[in-house]
């Protein structure tokens, strides 16, 4: 069997070792500058890699559809063997039509919301998730070439999804609202108490720095305050499920259930003009919410 020789010539090896040492020293001495350079250089590589990513995402979607149909058809076959063939055909068609209907409903909701919000927003598709286990992120199929930048807000018609933290020419990485490293300025819609929304390690969210005298309670809705970050005022974030008051603490915090099921989001809108102040409070809860 003919093998590919991965071994490098001795000189190349020495150069590679020196290069690695220089990189290590560089990252220690100039961490942000060097990372900026690598991010810039990586942008076209990200564009190239976005194609296999998109292809793999399409294949995965196809397999998921096929698998969903297969499982459904097995159930039907067990119930009624005589009608199996006919049911297989109909189920397959039905599955495809349902998928198309759900996608249409979702996209219609996004379009309606986009029109109503009067913000400059661009739709994007989710093509992947974080390559590591430390952060909760999604990867979008659009990047710098579509005008996406770091800190831009990402939403669906149901509410806030997260914010962009990294971009390449053709992809963007969105840190989800449920990640503990995310921070979004929010306020309790009923009491007008402001705070910071961050994710939790359990995959939920919490509103920090609520004043002790606040009478926020479970069931209250939390929306973006629009003070900082890439979000206008009034976009839905979640609903308070529990208030935590420590005896000696200066503030209380509220546990939230995010309005968006970030584990199942497929299409999103990226807010490109965060400084445009929409009639936030008038937006309220969107009339049509995507089915997840």
């Amino acid at each position: 069997m003919r093998m590919v020789n991965f071994r490098l010539p001795y000189n190349t090896g020495r150069i590679a070792l020196v290069l690695a040492a220089v990189l290590l020293v560089g990252f220690l001495l100039l961490p942000s500058q060097l990372q900026g350079v690598f991010q810039e250089v990586g942008s076209p590589i990200g564009w190239v890699l976005s194609w296999p990513l998109r292809a793999a995402a399409s294949v995965q979607e196809g397999i998921a559809d096929f698998w969903g149909g297969f499982v459904a058809l097995r159930g039907v076959a067990e119930e009624n063997k005589e009608l199996r063939k006919e049911l297989e055909h109909l189920k397959g068609q039905n599955s495809q039509l349902r998928e198309a209907a759900v996608a249409t409903e979702r996209l219609t909701a996004l379009l309606e919301f986009k029109t109503r919000a009067e913000l400059s927003m661009v739709a994007a598709q989710v093509i992947g998730r974080d390559t590591g286990n430390w952060y909760r992120t999604i990867i979008l199929n659009k990047g710098e070439s579509d005008g996406f930048k770091s800190d831009m807000g990402v939403i669906t018609s149901a509410g806030v999804v997260g914010r962009i933290v990294k971009t390449t020419a053709a992809t963007s990485v969105v840190l989800l609202v449920t990640d503990p490293n995310n921070a979004i300025a929010g306020l309790v819609q009923r009491t007008r108490d402001e705070g910071i929304v961050e994710g939790t390690t359990q995959g939920m969210a919490r509103l920090k720095y609520i004043p002790l005298l606040s009478n926020a309670r479970p069931g209250d809705r939390v929306v973006t305050s629009g003070l900082v970050g890439g979000f206008p005022r009034g976009l839905a974030i979640g609903t308070i499920t529990r208030i935590n008051k420590d005896e000696e603490a200066l503030f209380q915090f509220a546990e939230l259930t995010p309005d968006v099921d970030v584990g199942r989001v497929e299409e999103v809108l990226v807010i490109q003009s965060p400084n445009v102040q929409a009639e936030g409070e008038q937006l309220g809860v969107p009339a049509v919410r995507p089915k997840s």
């Binding site: 991965f6 071994r7 490098l8 190349t12 090896g13 590679a16 070792l17 690695a20 990189l23 990252f27 961490p31 060097l34 990372q35 690598f38 991010q39 990586g42 590589i45 990200g46 890699l49 990513l53 992947g128 974080d130 390559t131 590591g132 430390w134 952060y135 992120t137 990867i139 933290v165 990294k166 390449t168 992809t171 990485v173 840190l175 990640d179 490293n181």
Partner: peptide, 23 residues
């Protein structure tokens, strides 16, 4: 050296699709 080079390249490119920092 092959391990080092592939590690550096893979670490860099994987971090382009993650919130983790490149270094």
């Amino acid at each position: 050296l092959e391990g080092l080079l592939l590690g550096l390249a893979l670490g860099w490119i994987m971090s382009l699709f993650s919130a983790a920092d490149l270094a």
